[in-house]
Amino acid sequence: MKEQDYDSHFSVPYLLILPSMIILTFFLYWPTVQSVILSLYRTAPFGSRKIYSGFDNYINLFTDPTYRASLVRTSVFVLVTIFGGLAISLILSVLVNQKLKGIKIYRTIFFIPYAISPTVSGSLWVFLLNPVAGHINYFLDLLFNIQIPWLTNGFFAFIAIIIATIWKNMGFNIIFFLAGLQSIPDSVYESARIDGANSFQIFRKITVPLLSPTTFYLIIMNIIFTVFQSFGIVDIMTQGGPADATNILIYQLYRDMFVNFRLGLAAAQSVILLILVLIVTFFHFKFVSKGVHYQ
């Protein structure tokens, strides 16, 4: 319809997409389909036995108290990490959204954790929290005279991986919140101030609602980050322990795949996570198409 499109070059768009499609087909679609197929088999280590078992793997998972506990634990982990992380990030973003000399330096500092890998984040925090030479316990001892068994107590280990995850994701969140804040025109604030609103009211009644598209996008991205990328953090910091306290879904999957050698069972777990991703993607699409509509 649109005359500016190169309609005459019929094959060009397909050629342009072809390289991406080849890579996607072989390295994304095909292995994903394979995961689904594999989840219907019971497998022996080394692939020496492979027995079709229908939905047995799924039934086993949902009747296994360990897996069910891991589901609940992961939900709590995701909720706490996202709400804690977004709240902290939003406050910091508002702080660095001021017109101030040298504000760029602070922004850069706040962005930095974005560039850091989960592995490195885990490594840094496991040092800070270690009971013998770590600094956190030293400060706590100094200030409050308490010693926290960070990585040997289940509850605190759970807090520890939440801290490392929030810290790692903070840079990403702040970048997006700041972009959102800067897209709010100054005139909106000015008119609010003329109407006599105080800072807190402005924050609550103007900033937060106007940021809601950003927040929604960040919630979605943070779900993906916390569910999947926390693997590196957990692997370095706690290996899922103590007593399973930090054994989140992705780590349980890794364990069944690489420690217990139950490929079929691990594949079934991948499929469960895949469904989760699809749900999240669905909401993301709804949001994206809504955004386009507004344009």
Binding site: L28, W30, P31, S35, M257, L263, A267, S270, L273, V277
Partner: peptide, 8 residues
């Protein structure tokens, strides 16, 4: 994510 399809 990579984790969903890593074995195959």
């Amino acid at each position: 994510p990579m984790q969903v399809r890593v074995v195959p």
